[in-house]
Design a protein around this nucleic acid. Structure first.
Lengths: 113, 113
DNA sequence: AGAATTTATAGAGGGATGTCAATATAGATA
DNA sequence: TATCTATATTGACATCCCTCTATAAATTCT
């Protein structure tokens, strides 16, 4: 089952206790965001005008080796936060806005009236 | 600086690229949520009527040793997602709703018009 | 085809992390 | 004070993870 599907059918954390199965799946997404480099990559991609960013631009934003960035991109792609597309020599990464949106909804806490 | 303060003064990920300093701080919170047991603990506490949960109730929800649960509670407390209060023999944990709320806001993506 | 460029994969090393058993601490009760 | 219960801390161990170098794969350009 795709992680995005699990996200879509998971009530907010504050609604009812998360079952073990969903927790196992959802924690993977948070774990992916639980690294400073990956969090910045997501932010770079998410905030970029046009919606897509070339790997070379991402690599240039860090003082890390190219394979390390490639590894982080793979992790983010595997949990469904990013997608990639190759065009000519370059690979472009895009945010999956629904994934981030569903995560946001998952964390949403009803206003303390 | 408290993590909650950093959360409060961080624009959404999709607004502008997150700087390295904030990313380092914020990734800690996501890392804390990046474990299935901790995610369930947060959900248990967040969804519990009355807003607080005794450690004994949390321990009873898992087939893990008491020290392991204690360790996870400590992690969640250190990143500012939970607080605790001792009353008599028992320790009660509460959600810090602002923390979860700010996290939710951080991930919020403007609707793709 | 050969060379150069861009990105991904493989493998290794060192540090972080989840778990447990054992023990300590705090509070209640006898 | 002694003892019992609830929770936290310590220390150990196995596993996971971030990073690197080396190399492969895909694409473009001579």
């Amino acid at each position: 089952m795709e992680l995005l599907e699990i996200l879509e059918c998971s009530p907010p954390l504050a609604r009812e206790p998360l079952d073990a199965e969903r927790a196992a799946a959802l924690s993977q997404v948070f774990k992916a965001l639980g690294d400073p480099v990956r969090l910045r990559i997501v932010s770079i991609v998410a905030s970029h005008a046009g919606g897509e960013v070339c790997v070379c631009d991402i690599t240039g934003a860090f003082e890390l080796s190219q394979p390390t960035i490639s590894h982080h991109l793979k992790v983010l792609k595997e949990v469904g936060l990013l997608t990639s597309e190759r065009r000519a020599s370059w690979v472009y990464y895009r945010l999956v806005p629904e994934a981030l949106g569903e995560l946001s909804a998952l964390l949403n806490v009803p206003a303390t009236a």
